[in-house]
Amino acid sequence: MTVFKSFLGATATLALTAGAALAEPAMIYDLGGKFDKSFNEAAFGGAQRWSEETGEEFYEIELQSEAQREQALRRFAERGANPIVMAGFAFADALGEVAPDYPDTKFVIIDMVVEEPNVRSVVFNEHEGSYLVGMLAAEASESGTVGFIGGMDIPLIRKFACGYAQGVKAVSPDAEIIANMTGTTPAAWNDPVKGSELTKAQISQGADVIYAAAGGTGVGVLQTAADEGILSIGVDSNQNYMHPGKVLTSMTKRVDNAVYDAFSEGADLEPGFVVMGLSNDGVGYAVDEHNEALITDDMTAAVEKASDDIASGAITVHDYTSDDSCPDLQF
């Protein structure tokens, strides 16, 4: 019985400290880890930028296991963290469970929609950004064959590939698109060696522009493409700087902005559904001093026009996840 009393005591103190805590925001990274040079790192970048500008601190955790998703959410919520931002679609199920239990806490989920009154769902139109870099790839390609290397074979990455294929076909309908996925387990997000091998295989099949949507694996793709003298396309963050003059462009997905906005708005943020697309600079293609020589004025003009047309609805880019199929690419 005494043991049991000390349990109760401990829970009580926990509850007290939770009430007294300050409302710091919290950031939860997915299993890929904080420094993946891609998606999670972009989220970290946004949180970091907020922290530097405001001088405030934030809680963060890199998950180690699936069971920790719900655990981390509950623990941060009980400590009074607000808002709690999570990077990754895989949180949806856990968040659906947790959000109703903490009605005063605001949650932000990136890449997925969770319909609860205290949740903001941020989704990106990756297919639109991929469409634009697909157009650039087709313009830059001389062989008429372009490549796509995905990370783990999941619907989200097929969405990237499908948008890319449509962009390529929009410029040159006869172009050939070689699409490969790195693997079928989460290890595929961080396998630069395999990324490099796939790049070589695609080059031997004639590809001269390769788009990597593969997290840390993309580092190997970009490296090998630069070594072999062909062009590559980066993803999520602007990766043009990694091999100046060899990276055609990067499909930017401004996860950092989504995190930064959420942290800035703090506990008062508006829940609901936020689409980050071409119109609000959520996705796009990166042009900077490292790749401006590669992008001609004609290319810019064509892509800008397509961008406007997509934003106005004149062009519809098919979203793979809407019906699990792609008109221009077979998986």
């Binding site: 679609f89 895989a90 949806a92 199920d93 890449d111 997925m112 999941i154 619907p155 989200l156 996840t321 809407s322 019906d323 699990d324």
Partner: peptide, 8 residues
Amino acid sequence: RPTGSMDP
């Protein structure tokens, strides 16, 4: 996987 779901 249920159709339309992102999560495998």
